[in-house]
Design a protein around this nucleic acid. Structure first.
Lengths: 202, 202
DNA sequence: AACCACATGTAATTCGTTACATGATTCG
DNA sequence: CGAATCATGTAACGAATTACATGTGGTT
């Protein structure tokens, strides 16, 4: 029920519309939270309202039609029970590491270096944003959020540092040894060359 | 088509069965790769075979019935084309940060400290494994994988360092300022107290 | 008048997991 | 000989995205 709880968490800051929530996830999202589509948000808000965790704030028909959702007592309690529960260990899905782990000597390492450069730029963008965030003059950053932001900063800095190291290692072709007790690296190259040669002969 | 490519990537190490692949994801998984269930793996392998990316290695009916899959020339090419494509920026979904970001002064911070302690232990377990990995005497670790592992190490170490800092800050109640231009922290506490009081009165 | 940002919603589809069903082989 | 492990597979279900459908209000 984690997506629902995340919605309750966002609403705990202040009453919001589905549209607001989507926007909220749009920019901060990049490094700490995760995205959500309208097709998820609206049905879930409806469901949460039906179950009594949130309700629609009545407003005196000013301007555009919109539904501001606010937490009910039951909603506040549900959020806090969830917060007290031990969080699951996060799963990181990073294509870069799958690509890197299965790279081999018959591939052009400059492409890999390109991937690293791009990742570095993206990471630097986010880092810049994260660094300014707690003093940008408009965002609300609670004491606790500030701790979370500090973590994001450290993680992003570690990533950039690694990218620099890794890039240098690849450029100077000074790769570490690894552990290859069965000559697997060679076997892989042979299997691959064999397969591709076969193919060419046809 | 990222799951399919990950299967091709695993098969590029050596021919494997669906069962092997699942096992492969089971332990290393924790920090660099991601898990996959049989309900995903078998149908995808079947599909990849039908599409000509992999084929079943014939074996002389020794022992147990099993299907060893190997890459076809088309499979090798597809894997490498995918590797050359720029990887998407990873999405991190971490409940801990949602819980932390919406923590507030009316909640017992010792519970939060408990969450951090648990995360620390889990992270240390993985770090221990990751550190031993490239010299554990049995795993195959290519030169490139060794780079990826080095990254995992740095990230995990950064995480542990942050947990230590954050725990200390919470214990000494020495939290940072944050940024609260509209008195939102107070507003949140008021909204919540109001809601919960109402509830009690009923 | 046209366009963009605000705003809500649903239907079809994709994607993946869980749970179940089945059976062989090895080890104590 | 019973349990654990190896091994493959499917059906039902659940979760989330994409694409579509609709409309208002402010700005140029």
């Amino acid at each position: 029920m984690s997506v629902e709880h995340t919605l309750l968490a966002v609403l705990s800051y202040w009453p919001s519309t589905g549209y607001d929530i989507k926007a909220e996830f749009e920019h901060k999202a990049a490094s700490l939270y995760w995205g959500m589509s309208y097709g998820s948000i609206y049905p879930k808000l409806k469901k949460l309202e039906e179950e009594g965790f949130i309700y629609t704030l009545e407003q005196e028909a000013e301007g555009r039609r919109k539904k501001l959702y606010e937490l009910t007592p039951k909603g506040w309690e549900e959020l806090e029970n969830w917060q007290r529960m031990s969080p699951a260990y996060p799963v990181v899905k990073d294509e870069l590491f799958v690509k890197l782990s299965t790279w081999h000597d018959d591939m052009d390492s400059s492409i890999l270096i390109g991937h690293l450069q791009k990742r570095r730029e993206e990471t630097e963008d986010i880092l810049r944003f994260v660094k300014e965030w707690p003093s940008n003059g408009y965002s609300f950053v609670s004491k606790f959020s500030a701790l979370a932001i500090r973590f994001a900063e450290m993680r992003l800095e570690a990533e950039i540092k690694w990218i620099e190291e890794a890039t240098h290692i690849l450029k100077t072709n000074d790769l570490p040894e690894g552990q290859d007790l069965n000559g697997n690296a060679d076997k892989i190259l042979k299997r691959r060359r064999m397969a591709l040669k076969e193919n060419e002969e046809k």
